[in-house]
Protein backbone atom coordinates (compact mmCIF):
# COMPACT_ATOMS: atom_id res chain seq x y z
CA UNK A 1 0.00 0.00 0.00
CA UNK A 2 2.72 2.41 1.00
CA UNK A 3 4.67 1.44 -2.07
CA UNK A 4 1.86 2.19 -4.49
CA UNK A 5 1.24 5.51 -2.75
CA UNK A 6 4.87 6.39 -3.23
CA UNK A 7 4.67 5.38 -6.88
CA UNK A 8 1.55 7.51 -7.27
CA UNK A 9 3.21 10.53 -5.68
CA UNK A 10 6.23 9.96 -7.89
CA UNK A 11 4.08 9.92 -10.95
CA UNK A 12 2.07 12.98 -9.88
CA UNK A 13 5.21 14.94 -9.08
CA UNK A 14 6.60 13.85 -12.43
CA UNK A 15 3.49 14.98 -14.30
CA UNK A 16 3.52 18.29 -12.48
CA UNK A 17 7.13 18.73 -13.41
CA UNK A 18 6.23 18.32 -17.06
CA UNK A 19 3.38 20.80 -16.69
CA UNK A 20 5.18 23.35 -14.54
CA UNK A 21 6.68 25.47 -17.34
CA UNK A 22 3.25 25.81 -18.88
CA UNK A 23 1.81 26.73 -15.49
CA UNK A 24 4.55 29.28 -14.84
CA UNK A 25 3.74 30.88 -18.17
CA UNK A 26 0.06 31.16 -17.23
CA UNK A 27 0.95 32.56 -13.80
CA UNK A 28 3.30 35.03 -15.46
CA UNK A 29 0.71 36.23 -17.95
CA UNK A 30 -1.88 36.54 -15.18
CA UNK A 31 0.34 38.54 -12.87
CA UNK A 32 1.69 40.85 -15.55
CA UNK A 33 -1.72 41.57 -17.06
CA UNK A 34 -3.26 42.08 -13.62
CA UNK A 35 -0.53 44.48 -12.56
CA UNK A 36 -1.02 46.54 -15.68
CA UNK A 37 -4.73 46.67 -14.94
CA UNK A 38 -4.25 47.61 -11.27
CA UNK A 39 -2.04 50.55 -12.22
CA UNK A 40 -3.51 51.62 -15.54
CA UNK A 41 -7.19 51.84 -14.59
CA UNK A 42 -6.75 53.96 -11.42
CA UNK A 43 -4.25 56.21 -13.17
CA UNK A 44 -6.55 56.72 -16.13
CA UNK A 45 -9.37 57.48 -13.70
CA UNK A 46 -7.43 60.07 -11.69
CA UNK A 47 -6.11 61.63 -14.90
CA UNK A 48 -9.61 61.96 -16.22
CA UNK A 49 -10.93 63.53 -13.02
CA UNK A 50 -8.00 65.93 -12.81
CA UNK A 51 -8.31 66.89 -16.46
CA UNK A 52 -12.03 67.49 -16.07
CA UNK A 53 -11.44 69.62 -12.99
CA UNK A 54 -8.89 71.76 -14.81
CA UNK A 55 -10.75 72.06 -18.08
CA UNK A 56 -14.10 72.96 -16.62
CA UNK A 57 -12.68 74.56 -13.49
CA UNK A 58 -15.00 72.65 -11.21
CA UNK A 59 -14.53 71.07 -7.83
CA UNK A 60 -13.57 67.48 -7.13
CA UNK A 61 -17.13 66.82 -6.07
CA UNK A 62 -18.57 67.95 -9.38
CA UNK A 63 -16.06 65.98 -11.39
CA UNK A 64 -16.89 62.90 -9.38
CA UNK A 65 -20.56 63.44 -10.08
CA UNK A 66 -19.83 63.27 -13.79
CA UNK A 67 -17.56 60.22 -13.74
CA UNK A 68 -18.70 58.51 -10.60
CA UNK A 69 -16.37 57.11 -7.96
CA UNK A 70 -14.01 54.33 -8.82
CA UNK A 71 -14.63 50.91 -7.36
CA UNK A 72 -12.63 47.72 -7.42
CA UNK A 73 -15.45 46.26 -9.44
CA UNK A 74 -14.59 48.64 -12.29
CA UNK A 75 -11.10 47.16 -12.39
CA UNK A 76 -12.38 43.60 -12.14
CA UNK A 77 -14.46 44.12 -15.23
CA UNK A 78 -11.54 44.97 -17.46
CA UNK A 79 -9.88 42.41 -19.67
CA UNK A 80 -6.63 42.94 -17.76
CA UNK A 81 -8.22 40.79 -15.10
CA UNK A 82 -10.78 38.74 -16.97
CA UNK A 83 -8.51 38.02 -19.92
CA UNK A 84 -5.94 35.96 -18.01
CA UNK A 85 -8.74 34.02 -16.30
CA UNK A 86 -10.34 33.16 -19.62
CA UNK A 87 -6.89 32.26 -20.91
CA UNK A 88 -6.19 30.07 -17.90
CA UNK A 89 -9.50 28.27 -18.15
CA UNK A 90 -9.17 27.55 -21.86
CA UNK A 91 -5.47 26.69 -21.59
CA UNK A 92 -6.10 24.13 -18.86
CA UNK A 93 -9.01 22.75 -20.83
CA UNK A 94 -6.69 22.24 -23.80
CA UNK A 95 -4.08 20.83 -21.48
CA UNK A 96 -6.54 18.19 -20.33
CA UNK A 97 -6.31 16.83 -23.87
CA UNK A 98 -2.63 17.50 -24.36
CA UNK A 99 -1.72 15.74 -21.11
CA UNK A 100 -2.77 12.48 -22.77
CA UNK A 101 -1.99 13.04 -26.42
CA UNK A 102 1.57 14.16 -25.82
CA UNK A 103 2.39 10.60 -24.72
CA UNK A 104 1.75 9.41 -28.26
CA UNK A 105 3.08 12.43 -30.12
CA UNK A 106 6.31 12.61 -32.04
CA UNK A 107 9.21 10.19 -32.11
CA UNK A 108 9.06 9.63 -28.42
CA UNK A 109 6.32 7.24 -27.63
CA UNK A 110 6.38 7.88 -23.94
CA UNK A 111 3.11 5.99 -23.64
CA UNK A 112 5.26 2.85 -23.77
CA UNK A 113 7.15 3.90 -20.69
CA UNK A 114 4.07 5.01 -18.75
CA UNK A 115 1.96 1.98 -19.56
CA UNK A 116 4.81 -0.41 -18.75
CA UNK A 117 5.38 0.95 -15.26
CA UNK A 118 4.85 -1.80 -12.70
CA UNK A 119 2.01 0.12 -11.03
CA UNK A 120 -1.74 0.03 -11.61
CA UNK A 121 -2.42 1.91 -14.82
CA UNK A 122 -5.14 3.96 -13.18
CA UNK A 123 -2.32 5.73 -11.35
CA UNK A 124 -1.58 7.38 -14.68
CA UNK A 125 -5.20 8.50 -14.95
CA UNK A 126 -5.35 9.82 -11.40
CA UNK A 127 -1.98 11.53 -11.53
CA UNK A 128 -2.92 13.44 -14.68
CA UNK A 129 -6.21 14.30 -13.05
CA UNK A 130 -4.65 15.51 -9.80
CA UNK A 131 -2.08 17.56 -11.66
CA UNK A 132 -4.76 19.41 -13.60
CA UNK A 133 -6.62 20.11 -10.39
CA UNK A 134 -3.47 21.26 -8.63
CA UNK A 135 -2.90 23.64 -11.55
CA UNK A 136 -6.47 24.95 -11.39
CA UNK A 137 -6.20 25.60 -7.66
CA UNK A 138 -2.76 27.12 -8.00
CA UNK A 139 -4.04 29.52 -10.63
CA UNK A 140 -7.02 30.42 -8.47
CA UNK A 141 -4.73 30.96 -5.48
CA UNK A 142 -2.42 33.16 -7.55
CA UNK A 143 -5.45 35.11 -8.70
CA UNK A 144 -6.58 35.62 -5.10
CA UNK A 145 -3.16 36.88 -4.04
CA UNK A 146 -3.11 39.17 -7.05
CA UNK A 147 -6.60 40.51 -6.29
CA UNK A 148 -5.76 41.27 -2.66
CA UNK A 149 -2.66 43.06 -3.84
CA UNK A 150 -4.62 44.88 -6.53
CA UNK A 151 -7.29 46.06 -4.09
CA UNK A 152 -4.67 47.58 -1.83
CA UNK A 153 -2.79 49.05 -4.77
CA UNK A 154 -5.93 50.73 -6.06
CA UNK A 155 -6.71 52.11 -2.61
CA UNK A 156 -3.20 53.54 -2.48
CA UNK A 157 -3.30 55.06 -5.98
CA UNK A 158 -6.67 56.77 -5.72
CA UNK A 159 -7.64 59.28 -3.01
CA UNK A 160 -10.11 57.60 -0.70
CA UNK A 161 -12.79 60.27 -1.36
CA UNK A 162 -12.70 59.24 -5.00
CA UNK A 163 -13.36 55.61 -4.18
CA UNK A 164 -16.78 54.11 -3.93
CA UNK A 165 -17.42 52.56 -0.58
CA UNK A 166 -17.31 48.91 -1.52
CA UNK A 167 -15.63 46.08 0.31
CA UNK A 168 -13.21 43.70 -1.36
CA UNK A 169 -15.66 40.83 -1.06
CA UNK A 170 -18.66 42.84 -2.25
CA UNK A 171 -16.77 43.73 -5.41
CA UNK A 172 -15.81 40.10 -5.96
CA UNK A 173 -19.22 38.63 -5.26
CA UNK A 174 -20.90 41.15 -7.52
CA UNK A 175 -18.93 39.73 -10.40
CA UNK A 176 -20.41 36.48 -11.73
CA UNK A 177 -16.99 35.24 -12.81
CA UNK A 178 -15.42 35.55 -9.39
CA UNK A 179 -18.55 34.51 -7.59
CA UNK A 180 -18.26 31.11 -9.21
CA UNK A 181 -14.51 30.75 -9.46
CA UNK A 182 -13.42 31.88 -6.00
CA UNK A 183 -14.44 30.18 -2.76
CA UNK A 184 -16.71 33.02 -1.67
CA UNK A 185 -19.66 30.73 -1.08
CA UNK A 186 -18.29 27.35 -0.02
CA UNK A 187 -21.20 25.39 -1.48
CA UNK A 188 -21.03 27.13 -4.82
CA UNK A 189 -17.29 26.57 -4.93
CA UNK A 190 -17.70 22.90 -4.10
CA UNK A 191 -20.49 22.52 -6.66
CA UNK A 192 -18.51 24.19 -9.43
CA UNK A 193 -15.47 22.08 -8.68
CA UNK A 194 -17.59 18.97 -8.39
CA UNK A 195 -19.01 19.60 -11.84
CA UNK A 196 -15.51 20.33 -13.11
CA UNK A 197 -14.30 17.07 -11.65
CA UNK A 198 -17.02 15.08 -13.37
CA UNK A 199 -16.37 16.97 -16.59
CA UNK A 200 -12.69 16.10 -16.43
CA UNK A 201 -13.46 12.45 -15.80
CA UNK A 202 -15.71 12.33 -18.83
CA UNK A 203 -13.13 14.17 -20.96
CA UNK A 204 -10.43 11.69 -19.96
CA UNK A 205 -12.75 8.80 -20.74
CA UNK A 206 -13.49 10.18 -24.19
CA UNK A 207 -9.77 10.61 -24.86
CA UNK A 208 -9.11 7.03 -23.80
CA UNK A 209 -11.97 5.84 -25.99
CA UNK A 210 -10.38 7.58 -28.94
CA UNK A 211 -6.96 6.17 -28.03
CA UNK A 212 -8.43 2.68 -27.87
CA UNK A 213 -10.76 2.61 -30.86
CA UNK A 214 -9.57 5.62 -32.92
CA UNK A 215 -12.32 6.95 -35.21
CA UNK A 216 -14.85 4.52 -33.85
CA UNK A 217 -13.76 5.69 -30.41
CA UNK A 218 -14.67 9.29 -31.23
CA UNK A 219 -18.19 8.19 -32.15
CA UNK A 220 -18.48 6.12 -28.99
CA UNK A 221 -17.08 9.10 -27.10
CA UNK A 222 -19.69 11.48 -28.46
CA UNK A 223 -22.41 8.98 -27.61
CA UNK A 224 -20.98 8.64 -24.13
CA UNK A 225 -20.95 12.41 -23.64
CA UNK A 226 -24.57 12.61 -24.74
CA UNK A 227 -25.53 9.84 -22.33
CA UNK A 228 -23.71 11.52 -19.45
CA UNK A 229 -25.43 14.80 -20.28
CA UNK A 230 -28.75 13.00 -20.21
CA UNK A 231 -27.96 11.44 -16.85
CA UNK A 232 -26.64 14.70 -15.42
CA UNK A 233 -29.66 16.69 -16.55
CA UNK A 234 -32.17 13.98 -15.71
CA UNK A 235 -32.89 15.32 -12.20
CA UNK A 236 -33.50 18.77 -13.68
CA UNK A 237 -36.06 17.38 -16.10
CA UNK A 238 -37.59 15.01 -13.60
CA UNK A 239 -40.26 17.47 -12.35
CA UNK A 240 -41.36 17.99 -15.97
CA UNK A 241 -41.49 14.25 -16.52
CA UNK A 242 -43.49 13.64 -13.38
CA UNK A 243 -45.66 16.61 -14.30
CA UNK A 244 -45.40 18.01 -10.80
CA UNK A 245 -42.80 20.57 -9.80
CA UNK A 246 -43.36 20.01 -6.14
CA UNK A 247 -43.27 16.25 -6.05
CA UNK A 248 -39.59 16.24 -5.18
CA UNK A 249 -38.08 18.67 -2.75
CA UNK A 250 -35.16 20.75 -3.97
CA UNK A 251 -32.92 18.94 -1.53
CA UNK A 252 -33.99 15.63 -3.04
CA UNK A 253 -33.32 16.94 -6.54
CA UNK A 254 -29.89 18.06 -5.40
CA UNK A 255 -29.19 14.64 -3.92
CA UNK A 256 -30.33 13.05 -7.18
CA UNK A 257 -28.06 15.40 -9.12
CA UNK A 258 -25.13 14.61 -6.87
CA UNK A 259 -25.88 10.91 -7.25
CA UNK A 260 -26.14 11.12 -11.02
CA UNK A 261 -22.89 13.10 -11.21
CA UNK A 262 -21.31 10.53 -8.93
CA UNK A 263 -22.62 7.79 -11.17
CA UNK A 264 -21.09 9.51 -14.20
CA UNK A 265 -17.77 9.87 -12.43
CA UNK A 266 -17.82 6.28 -11.27
CA UNK A 267 -18.78 4.95 -14.71
CA UNK A 268 -16.12 7.09 -16.33
CA UNK A 269 -13.51 5.74 -13.98
CA UNK A 270 -14.63 2.16 -14.56
CA UNK A 271 -14.64 2.61 -18.34
CA UNK A 272 -11.26 4.31 -18.23
CA UNK A 273 -9.88 1.53 -16.10
CA UNK A 274 -11.17 -1.09 -18.48
CA UNK A 275 -9.75 0.78 -21.47
CA UNK A 276 -6.38 1.38 -19.88
CA UNK A 277 -6.06 -2.21 -18.75
CA UNK A 278 -7.50 -4.02 -21.73
CA UNK A 279 -7.99 -1.84 -24.77
CA UNK A 280 -5.37 0.83 -24.94
CA UNK A 281 -3.02 0.65 -27.91
CA UNK A 282 0.41 2.21 -28.13
Amino acid sequence: MKKTLKAFLNLTAFELDRLSKFLYALIGVTLVANMIGYVLIPLRFTDRINAYMVQNSVTEQQALEVYGELSFYDILQTSWILGPIALGVSALLLYAFFIWYREWLGKNTFAYRLLMLPIPRMHIFYSKFVVIYVSIFTLIAIQIVSLIFGFNLMSALVPSEWLRHMSFFSALSMHPFFYYILPLEPWIFLAINGIGLVFLHVTFTVILLERSFSVKGILIGITYVLITLLIALFPAFLPELIGNHYYLYNSELLILTVLSLGLISFTSIMISRFLLNKKITV
Binding site: A7, N10, F14, R18, K107, N108, T109, F110, Y112, R113, M116, L117, P118, I119, V282
Partner: peptide
Protein backbone atom coordinates in the same frame (compact mmCIF):
# COMPACT_ATOMS: atom_id res chain seq x y z
CA UNK B 1 10.34 -4.50 -23.42
CA UNK B 2 12.75 -2.51 -25.52
CA UNK B 3 10.68 -1.00 -28.30
CA UNK B 4 11.93 0.44 -31.54
CA UNK B 5 11.19 3.97 -30.32
CA UNK B 6 12.75 6.25 -27.75
CA UNK B 7 10.83 5.80 -24.54
CA UNK B 8 12.34 8.33 -22.25
CA UNK B 9 11.69 12.05 -22.31
CA UNK B 10 13.81 13.89 -24.87
CA UNK B 11 14.82 16.63 -22.45
CA UNK B 12 16.06 14.08 -19.92
CA UNK B 13 19.70 13.10 -19.84
CA UNK B 14 20.85 9.50 -19.52
CA UNK B 15 21.18 9.72 -15.75
CA UNK B 16 17.68 11.20 -15.32
CA UNK B 17 16.27 8.46 -17.48
CA UNK B 18 17.91 5.88 -15.24
CA UNK B 19 16.68 7.66 -12.10
CA UNK B 20 13.16 7.57 -13.46
CA UNK B 21 13.42 3.81 -13.87
CA UNK B 22 14.91 3.39 -10.42
CA UNK B 23 11.95 5.30 -8.97
CA UNK B 24 9.40 2.81 -10.15
CA UNK B 25 11.06 -0.54 -10.68
CA UNK B 26 12.03 -2.74 -7.78
Amino acid sequence: FIPDAAISLPHYNVQESMDFMADYYD
